[in-house]
Nucleic acid binder design. Sequence first.
DNA 1: GCCAGTTTTGACGAATTCGTCAGAGAGACT
DNA 2: AGTCTCTCTGACGAATTCGTCAAAACTGGC
Lengths: 231, 231
Amino acid sequence: MSEAVAAAARKRGERRKAQTRASLIRAAQQLLAEDRTSVPILEITELADVGMGSFYNHFETKEELFQAAVESALDLQGAVLDAWTEDIEDPAEVFARSFRLTGRIHRVEPQLSRVIISRGMSMISSEHGLGPRALRDITRGCESGRFTIADPYPALLIAAGAALALGQAIHDHPERDDAQLADQVAEDILRMFGVPPGEAAAICRSPLPSVVDLLEQALPNLPHVPQPDSA
Amino acid sequence: MSEAVAAAARKRGERRKAQTRASLIRAAQQLLAEDRTSVPILEITELADVGMGSFYNHFETKEELFQAAVESALDLQGAVLDAWTEDIEDPAEVFARSFRLTGRIHRVEPQLSRVIISRGMSMISSEHGLGPRALRDITRGCESGRFTIADPYPALLIAAGAALALGQAIHDHPERDDAQLADQVAEDILRMFGVPPGEAAAICRSPLPSVVDLLEQALPNLPHVPQPDSA
DNA sequence: GCCAGTTTTGACGAATTCGTCAGAGAGACT
DNA sequence: AGTCTCTCTGACGAATTCGTCAAAACTGGC
């Protein structure tokens, strides 16, 4: 037991450092969402409520921080989607659910969404991006015969591009029904994958759990996510 | 006739001013393509080979210049695609040709391509973006019964997102066969539009004119495009 | 309580960047 | 040639931004 206590103690310093880093990343995400990436470092640290010098303890340049901020947001989004679809068998349902929930997230978590939109395109091929995850799911669908496309990769490009464009459209036109739009896009893409039209429509109109509830369940259990300060 | 001469003369000043503006826009496009948008204004004017003070004769802020640079690139791309497809009847062929040629442009004109990728997502709904043009073509296809989708708008989002993702992929993975990739993506999207698979495949495998030749023909005739200096 | 190792902090001088402005230059008109 | 107007130009002072560093704060081990 004393070992456990010691271990916990040994990690208090690390946690403090991680807190500072997380604060900086959260501030960077806020600025990224507001599309204000050429702010002075002092403004970032003020927003993060840390000393100006702390920035240089964690990052060499602003760009490095913003990069980390985007990767963190993408990792979060990926982990959340995985958690929400892990118990589904049908690849078509996995894809539809991921896509439709992503659409809902754009409205419920506009900051996360904007961060991803801001740089998601250039991260499609990155290991942090949603590309690898989507490619895995599409490939699974092809191998199981559920999807009948010639090659998963072009399909991935379409799906990933559509996901980002959908988010952009939801932000640009808040008056539209975002849920219906997301469902329609998902349905179109399923048909492109080779899912019969009737089935695609049924899958994309099935009821979804509330994103808010899902997020609340998922967030506390996710590893290495910048948490809001528990002041 | 003296009127015509006077008019020509009156415009010499305007042309000189437009030259300076075009130089600035070309410099901005180069920087945009290199993803270096937080450079000092002096560096932009040096690249444009104009005096530092000239910048403020044309733009209030750097962002305003970059905005103009993106709009100029998008207008060019749109005008070129229109010129290349104006005499085609079948909406499916118009779409396929636009999409496949856009894919080729990413490799042939990497700078134009990168500029569009850098901000194309946020310009989908803009009048300068490719969105309105694509929406027009897709709607035409729906009305003529060639496309059987429920709603043109979600389809537009998929096509636009895919076009940008394709460009990104071509830059990220230069070892891939970009022409084949673009053709496959176009084919998948045509099938999504409701074009029978066999037809979609045939349309997207038909031979294409050389983008280089087309560009050479189209460029000199396009209005209000920043031309390279004819030193 | 004290020391060694780490992280945080913000003040400061150095360096960069900004935006203005007065003068030069080019063109149009008399 | 003279003058008027509009654009171009780059030097300059003002303002911003950077990155370092020595001191302070915190932590863990003794």
